[in-house]
Design a protein around this nucleic acid. Structure first.
Lengths: 253, 253
DNA sequence: CTGTCGATCATTGTATCCAATAACCGTTCG
DNA sequence: CGAACGGTTATTGGATACAATGATCGACAG
């Protein structure tokens, strides 16, 4: 989609701009859930003609961020707590399948080099007694890398695509709720547990233990579920979840 | 997407036409894997202007049937045997999650009525000693219904959407390989086994046995995997697989 | 013969316009 | 007050035109 020609400017630069900006308007809450996306308003706002905007909206619909109306046009989608939890679980289920497939493939030394390095780096990070904000930043980067490498080890384009697609929902990504950990009194402990999962998943893959790898990867996604529950008790944290304006909070009786 | 106004003609009738026709051209092999989709050629062929065609192509890209080129435009995707097997497995994994979630929800009598009827109808069908072609037709309809109802019982829009998306690949649908069974000498036996799975999945859901339901649903998708293997030995059968022109057959050395 | 360059043509992305239809508002009636 | 209707305005889908760029072909040089 970000089709790039030789000078690195996409051939469809206006469509890319429309897509990025629209996504931003939606995720920031400027375009509110349930409201119609006003094409002409976006035209004025972005300085792009309607055509690329309409192409971008079709893509955003496939991402799950907008729905089309029977009368024409699009509205911004809304998600509730259950949707978030389910998205995390779908990701965990598919990553579980990726871990199992990775183990079943019996990857060789060269294939495992990157993920071993990554787990080693995560280990060194987690071993620090008082994690700084920089440490947390590094953790987020390496965590994402671990998940990416895990999926690549499964060597299945179809599976990767399915995982990428659920992760188009911003709150479904592996790092979506990691920030919650950084604010807990026992934040280091949770890092320790998460890293134990990473390490054990790698170990299971190395040993060709598919069922173990799958179970561990699915349990690993439970950390995000736990963080979701924590964030739900804290409005300020919930506001920091990627895509939070799309999330309808349950009314307090 | 098929946004329909009050008189049942979609407001975007040209875009729908373009989408349906393009999909057909791709799945029938008229637009060949690896080849560029010629917009103007499609304009002439369908009698639709370029705008709806381009909107349809973006949707087909999200379906996985076309890829965009860095130089602009789209090419038809190609899949190999591993992609098919993986698509079936992703579907099975997600349907496994659906079955587990359905069981965990403890649905009441009313919620289970439809799927019970469906399983009952499948039972009556499978009990016949010599299945006719009409029987097979009914089987296909009821089989699809079973899978649809199963996913609905999970009561998760996010999960349903993930399953719908993998099923956009034609060879990943629950019925994609059922025809292979109709041509086997022991075709009734395979129906019996498949129906045992349906029945047991329902039983597990009724009993709230999530792990059992999940395992059964995943094993159930293995029937399609088996039929894939059978079809791979038989060029004529392989040609009848939905989307077969997209599939690159392995060269015989 | 092969590679490079330039010209031409075909294709695609985008902007703009037109027409259809949905939404909104005001008025009237029960 | 609420519902129905009609008129007006706004919005969206589709068609078309224009410009940019990629692909192709022929000529020339090494």
């Amino acid at each position: 989609m970000t089709a790039r020609s030789s000078d690195d400017k996409p051939r469809n630069a206006q469509t890319v701009k429309a897509l990025l900006k629209l996504r931003e308007l939606i995720l920031s809450g400027e375009l509110k859930p349930g409201e119609r996306v006003p094409e002409l308003g976006i035209v004025e706002r972005l300085g792009v003609s309607r055509t690329p905007i309409r192409l971008a909206l079709v893509r955003l619909e496939e991402e799950g961020l907008v729905d089309c109306l029977s009368t024409g046009g699009f509205t911004v989608c809304r998600f509730d707590e259950q949707d978030i939890a389910d998205a995390i679980e779908v990701r965990g289920t598919l990553e579980g399948m990726a871990a199992r497939r990775a183990a079943e493939r019996r990857p060789d030394r060269a294939e495992l080099a990157d993920i071993r390095d990554c787990v080693g780096s995560l280990d060194a990070l987690v071993r620090r007694n008082n994690p700084t904000l920089d440490d947390f930043s590094d953790y987020i980067r390496l965590n994402e890398r671990f998940h990416t490498l895990l999926v690549e080890l499964a060597a299945s384009p179809v599976l990767k695509r399915s995982i990428d697609r659920i992760q188009q929902l911003p709150f479904a990504s592996p790092n979506a709720f990691v920030f919650v950990q950084s604010e807990l009194a026992r934040s280091r402990e949770i890092l320790v547990i998460a890293q134990e999962h990473h390490r054990a998943i790698l170990e299971a893959i190395e040993a060709g233990e598919g069922a173990r790898a799958e179970s561990l990867a699915r349990e690993h996604s439970r950390i995000a579920r736990r963080n979701l529950q924590i964030a739900l008790q804290n409005q300020q944290q919930m506001e920091r979840v990627p895509g939070s304006p799309l999330i309808r909070m349950r009314k307090r009786a």
